[in-house]
Design a protein around this nucleic acid. Sequence first.
DNA 1: GCACCATCCGGACTTTAGTCCAAATCAGCC
DNA 2: GGCTGATTTGGACTAAAGTCCGGATGGTGC
Lengths: 197, 197
Amino acid sequence: MVRETSLELLMSRPVQERADAARNREKVLAAAARLFAEKGVDAVSMDAVAAEAGVGKGTLFRRFGDKAGLAVALLDDRERDLQQRILSGPPPLGPGAPARERLVAFVRAYLDFLFAHLDLVRMSETASPGARYRIGSYWFWHRHVAILLAQSRGGDADVLAHTLLAAMQAELADVLQTEYGRDRTLTALTTLATTLT
Amino acid sequence: MVRETSLELLMSRPVQERADAARNREKVLAAAARLFAEKGVDAVSMDAVAAEAGVGKGTLFRRFGDKAGLAVALLDDRERDLQQRILSGPPPLGPGAPARERLVAFVRAYLDFLFAHLDLVRMSETASPGARYRIGSYWFWHRHVAILLAQSRGGDADVLAHTLLAAMQAELADVLQTEYGRDRTLTALTTLATTLT
DNA sequence: GCACCATCCGGACTTTAGTCCAAATCAGCC
DNA sequence: GGCTGATTTGGACTAAAGTCCGGATGGTGC
């Protein structure tokens, strides 16, 4: 389990790929993006993605592991962008602002990202049991939140960081959005973040 | 979606069953309990349960809907017990204590229940996507927490109740237990509950 | 006891995720 | 260009969830 790692290390890329592998990776990502946009994430099987990409199923799974891995790969760019803004962007999301303001900015920015890609994130979190806690980016968000909480309150920061992230998981966000709308959801989660600092 | 219902209504039972149906229900529950105890929840397929119960697969699914439904049925007794203690047991879990104390008592009691049946609850929450928010008991817990929060803080109680419950979902509890142990987990969640009131 | 109909049963069937390995392909080196 | 060994490929295969429907079974009214 990833633990004492720096935020930067949590963003590292896999090693070099062979040329045909890289080509197929692109074909698969393009095909998946196309199909998901057209039919919706849940209505597309892995077979369909493989067929649309003109690639065998084995290739698909070797490259992305499972459905969650495919979703992660599709989200990668957007996620890295947010991560960069946290690491070195302007405050209050980036360094420089007080912990409480950074945390609120993070909640807002993360929810923006989440609602913009709700289906994909949901797939990345629930495609296989426990998937959420095996994804590298989860531990990036966790570390960031835990550090901010530790700065502003001390004890229990690690556990409380998990609970704040649990409140922003895709499946719940979907329910909250449907039941109460995005505004109330954002307001309440901001309240939660503020209360915790 | 269940909404404006009283807590009592959320506990209602299905209608009367035919005799053979009731017999098979018991056979299935007994077989499932046996197999789960012996091999672990994750290593038992629905076919295996059907075979062990001496019943067809169709029967199994007709009766319990899916794997999550089977888990819910197995947890039913324990869950109803906790629900009864909330509705009419002694304070601070039951009525009579101040909202904050009732909420802390609930968190403690729910985590006891959760850790005692972690695998089954995890299955009931994750066997199918969104399962957690379709289970009747989830809405029982939600209503209880939301009422307590509304009493002690006002606005946003409904959304915040969901976030507190999200912090106690089985998959996360499993991670927290492994990473930090049950004591720290309980402490942090108690802090969270207190902070929210 | 008997007939009737709603309900239930069970296993064959479909669909999908994920595995496996023989054959094809690539990249570096002579 | 041609050899060589590591890597990748692709589709047949397995396993498991969940559906379907012809036939069996149970309760009820007489």
